[in-house]
């Protein structure tokens, strides 16, 4: 439920942005953070909730890659 995934901001339009999440482009809301193009961010339920260092984003992505392999 509280799962959040990292992504990279590739376009900003007001309180909305496009993010690259594991090569998928998704629309997200950025009202809860201050972000700029190229920032790595943490996304939960369609909203950016945190700005991350690139290394932190990649570490979290590694976990999701592992979890994906093990999906039911």
């Amino acid at each position: 439920m509280c799962v959040a995934v990292p992504g990279k901001i590739i376009e900003i339009n007001g309180n909305k942005a496009k993010v690259d999440i594991m090569k998928n482009v998704c629309d997200v809301n950025i009202a809860l953070v201050n972000v700029k193009l190229g920032d790595y961010v943490l996304i939960h339920a369609g909203c950016v909730i945190d700005v991350l260092e690139k290394e932190t984003a990649e570490e979290i992505l590694d976990i999701f890659a592992d979890l994906e392999e093990d999906a039911f």
Binding site: M1, C2, A4, N29, A31, L32, H44, A45, G46, C47, I49
Partner: peptide
């Protein structure tokens, strides 16, 4: 609307 504090602010944006 179910969740802990991670999700609650998103419901606040929804009301907004």
């Amino acid at each position: 609307a179910v969740g802990f504090e991670t999700t609650t602010p998103i419901y606040a944006i929804l009301i907004d």
